[in-house]
Amino acid sequence: MVADRREPAQVTATPAAVDLIAELVEEHGPLMFHQSGGCCDGSAPMCFVRGEMKLGSRDVHLGDVGGQPFYIGGDQYERWKHTTLILDVVPGRGAGFSIEAPRGVRFLIRSDVCAPA
């Protein structure tokens, strides 16, 4: 099972990203996000129809954006957990199998450092 949702959520979304999510939900139904790593379009968030990607026992549920769950791999979480993620959207050309790309836009992650507990 995927780890429980982080409280407080470690991911939020800009209004532009929330609007795009709403449009995509209308077109495709429920969605999911998975934070990628590595090269090319790595370090970019990927958006899929919910259930498209099989989650593993070590994926971490960072929170929900626009009502859709956002996950990151467990190893990557360990190296990113001192930061919070802000999902944004910019004009762009595509990446992996993320479903927003044909619209000429691309989800993007901005980050903040977590406040000391």
């Binding site: 990628s36 990557q76 992996g96 993320s98 044909p102």
Partner: peptide, 30 residues
């Protein structure tokens, strides 16, 4: 074409005997 519209059906096809991909980890997992 776009990854989601052309790359994905290629990667999913039962008619290919192997897939080679260069990119990032989430798509690599898919």
């Amino acid at each position: 074409g776009f990854g989601v519209e052309a790359g994905k059906p290629l990667a999913q096809s039962p008619r290919v005997a192997k897939v080679a991909f260069t990119g990032e980890t989430t798509t690599g997992r898919l």
